[in-house]
Amino acid sequence: MEKFAMKKTLIALAALAATTAFAQSTATISGSINVGIMNTGASGAQTEVASLGGGANAININVAEDLGGGLRGGFDSQIRFNAANGDRNSAGAVNALFHTANTYLTGGFGTARIGSIVEAGTCAFDPWGCTGGAALQAGTGISALGGAASVKQAVQYTTPTVNGFSANYTSSLSARTNERQTLGVNYANGPLALTAINIKGSGNSTTDGGTAITDTATSQRAIGASYDFGVARLSFLNTVNKGVGGATTADFTSIGATVPMGAYTLLAGFNKNDRATANFDTKISVGVNYALSKRTTLGADLFRSEELAAIAPRTGTAGSGFVTRIRHTF
């Protein structure tokens, strides 16, 4: 009888230990800083220390819990900051503390999120990865960025990846008349990557150092492709913006290249906006990265953008800028 009771006790303890193991959660803190010395090339611009890229200057706090049966839950968040002065730089009408903050469940069905969520974007098709300055998207001057906004009061569903294909849908659920809705379809398998993004509803406006969602009936469509040939990775992107009423306000074509050469990586890019006023439609960038380690990279860029000198009255004179920079990730 005592042996039987002891056996039951051991089984109960084992079950409790297993339950406790499933309930354990892990918290991870990561991030990066990307700062440099830049002159934008605009008329009257001065050389100054500059924070380069929104998401390139951020602290990420991620919590994950194993719920058992292949199901996990957790919390993802990001705090963005201005690397030049230390101020907050997260998206929101009042310079929010968190650029994104959401809880999620993930498993064989895919991933569901609720909260403040970053929608699908096109930064993967930018040789500079949207890090400002010479970047083709979210850079200085003419920018071809598609999506990538922080959508407040949002829900998101991402499918599992099947044979390289995946899709995600993000929508705000709020008091807006024009809720922001984003559908992204992706393919990534071997050297080839493809994306298609369609956005309807509330447009973007830049305020307080970040992107705020405004209640306007605008839309955006982006199609991108890249192929890694080994000696170089080439990318192509077309982004079309439409304003209220459906009139096309911008039509960007973006071509980029990255060429790895040991510790060095050469960068090159070209942007053209077919709907811009004449003489204010083109940006050309070149640059180089030097990897001091897996986490620390030095870089330098030159860029020329016709929009940089767009002062009233417009003269049509292009501006030439430069950046020297350092990035560290942790």
Rank of each mutant, 00 (worst) to 15 (best):
T216S: 14
T216K: 08
T216C: 06
T216F: 01
A217Q: 13
A217I: 06
A217T: 09
A217S: 13
T218C: 11
S219Q: 14
S219D: 12
S219P: 13
S219L: 08
Q220T: 11
R221D: 07
A222Q: 09
A222T: 13
A222N: 05
I223L: 14
I223N: 12
A225W: 00
A225G: 08
A225M: 05
A225T: 03
S226Q: 15
S226V: 05
Y227H: 15
Y227V: 08
D228L: 05
D228R: 01
D228A: 06
D228G: 11
F229H: 04
F229D: 04
F229N: 06
F229M: 12
G230K: 07
V231L: 10
A232F: 05
A232W: 04
R233E: 15
R233N: 15
L234E: 05
L234Q: 06
L234K: 05
L234Y: 05
F236S: 15
F236W: 12
L237F: 02
L237Y: 01
L237R: 01
N238R: 15
N238E: 13
N238G: 12
T239P: 09
T239C: 11
T239Q: 10
V240K: 04
V240S: 03
V240M: 02
V240I: 09
N241K: 12
N241S: 15
K242V: 03
K242Q: 13
G243I: 02
G243R: 02
G243K: 02
V244E: 12
G246K: 12
G246Y: 09
G246M: 06
A247M: 01
A247G: 09
A247N: 07
T248D: 07
T248W: 01
T248I: 06
T249G: 10
T249M: 02
T249K: 03
A250F: 00
A250R: 02
D251H: 08
F252Y: 06
F252V: 01
F252M: 02
F252E: 01
T253G: 13
S254H: 09
I255Y: 12
I255T: 14
G256D: 03
G256S: 07
G256K: 04
A257P: 03
A257H: 01
A257T: 13
T258W: 07
T258R: 11
T258Q: 15
V259A: 14
P260F: 08
P260A: 13
M261T: 07
M261G: 00
G262I: 06
G262H: 13
G262C: 11
G262F: 11
G262L: 09
G262P: 06
Y264C: 00
Y264M: 11
T265Y: 06
T265N: 07
T265E: 10
T265K: 14
L266E: 00
L267G: 02
L267W: 00
A268H: 04
A268K: 10
A268R: 04
